[in-house]
Amino acid sequence: MIFALTTLVTFLIMEGVTWCTHRFIMHGLLWVLHEDHHQPHDGFFEKNDLFFVIFAMPSIALFYFGVEGGLNILFFIGLGIMLYGLAYFLVHDVLIHRRFKWFDKTTNPYLRGLRKAHKMHHKHLGKEHGECFGMLYVPLKYFKVHQSA
């Protein structure tokens, strides 16, 4: 039970880690790697994809140390990080940016709200004045249905 709870809590904490990392590192110190993600471009890969490798490293290290001498809590922290990374890939690269055409025609209100929030994030081509730096938490204003007059 404690291991499942550890995995779940780690997954949930990762949303805050993601927000802070996106806001202060990707739109700050490492903008040089993230900038091409905010610019129109041809091709499948972008420098921003290096963040998948960078962010996988803690999870890999936790898996390694989490099985050393027998299964321990570090493994399940690594699992929570990895599951969040998988969710991030599915939401960000598949659903939002449609790099893979797996969930192309969703009508789910939550998923549509995620798309709207991320679209607002990308309306800013520079690193300043951004909004919606998280991934799974979306402010309620992006779920409102706009009615025409």
Rank of each mutant, 00 (worst) to 15 (best):
residue 43 G to S: 03
residue 45 F to Q: 09
residue 45 F to Y: 06
residue 45 F to G: 12
residue 46 E to R: 12
residue 47 K to W: 10
residue 48 N to E: 08
residue 48 N to P: 10
residue 49 D to W: 04
residue 50 L to P: 15
residue 50 L to W: 04
residue 50 L to G: 11
residue 51 F to D: 13
residue 51 F to S: 10
residue 51 F to H: 15
residue 52 F to N: 15
residue 52 F to E: 08
residue 56 A to E: 03
residue 56 A to K: 12
residue 57 M to D: 07
residue 57 M to V: 13
residue 59 S to R: 06
residue 59 S to K: 00
residue 60 I to K: 14
residue 62 L to I: 11
residue 62 L to K: 08
residue 62 L to P: 14
residue 63 F to V: 15
residue 64 Y to I: 08
residue 67 V to S: 03
residue 68 E to A: 06
residue 69 G to N: 03
residue 69 G to Q: 01
residue 70 G to N: 02
residue 71 L to W: 05
residue 71 L to T: 09
residue 71 L to K: 14
residue 72 N to R: 03
residue 72 N to H: 02
residue 72 N to A: 07
residue 77 I to M: 00
residue 77 I to N: 09
residue 78 G to H: 11
residue 78 G to F: 04
residue 79 L to C: 15
residue 81 I to T: 08
residue 82 M to P: 14
residue 83 L to P: 07
residue 84 Y to T: 15
residue 87 A to G: 13
residue 87 A to F: 10
residue 87 A to H: 07
residue 87 A to Y: 09
residue 87 A to I: 05
residue 88 Y to N: 05
residue 88 Y to P: 14
residue 88 Y to S: 11
residue 88 Y to K: 07
residue 89 F to G: 07
residue 89 F to M: 08
residue 90 L to F: 05
residue 90 L to E: 09
residue 91 V to Q: 00
residue 91 V to K: 01
residue 91 V to G: 06
residue 93 D to S: 14
residue 94 V to T: 11
residue 94 V to G: 14
residue 97 H to P: 14
residue 98 R to A: 10
residue 99 R to P: 10
residue 101 K to W: 07
residue 101 K to S: 12
residue 102 W to I: 15
residue 102 W to S: 15
residue 102 W to G: 15
residue 103 F to S: 09
residue 104 D to R: 08
residue 104 D to K: 05
residue 105 K to I: 08
residue 105 K to C: 07
residue 107 T to H: 04
residue 108 N to C: 06
residue 108 N to V: 03
residue 108 N to G: 05
residue 111 L to S: 13
residue 111 L to N: 06
residue 112 R to G: 13
residue 112 R to F: 02
residue 113 G to A: 02
residue 113 G to C: 01
residue 113 G to I: 00
residue 113 G to Y: 00
residue 115 R to K: 06
residue 115 R to W: 01
residue 118 H to Y: 09
residue 119 K to P: 03
residue 121 H to R: 04
residue 122 H to D: 08
residue 123 K to E: 01
residue 126 G to Y: 01
residue 126 G to L: 03
residue 127 K to S: 04
residue 128 E to T: 14
residue 129 H to W: 00
residue 129 H to P: 04
residue 130 G to V: 02
residue 130 G to R: 00
residue 132 C to W: 02
residue 134 G to M: 00
residue 134 G to K: 02
residue 135 M to P: 07
residue 136 L to R: 10
residue 136 L to F: 10
residue 137 Y to G: 02
residue 138 V to L: 00
residue 138 V to G: 04
residue 138 V to E: 02
residue 139 P to R: 00
residue 142 Y to T: 12
residue 144 K to E: 06
residue 144 K to A: 08
residue 146 H to I: 12
residue 146 H to M: 05
residue 146 H to W: 04
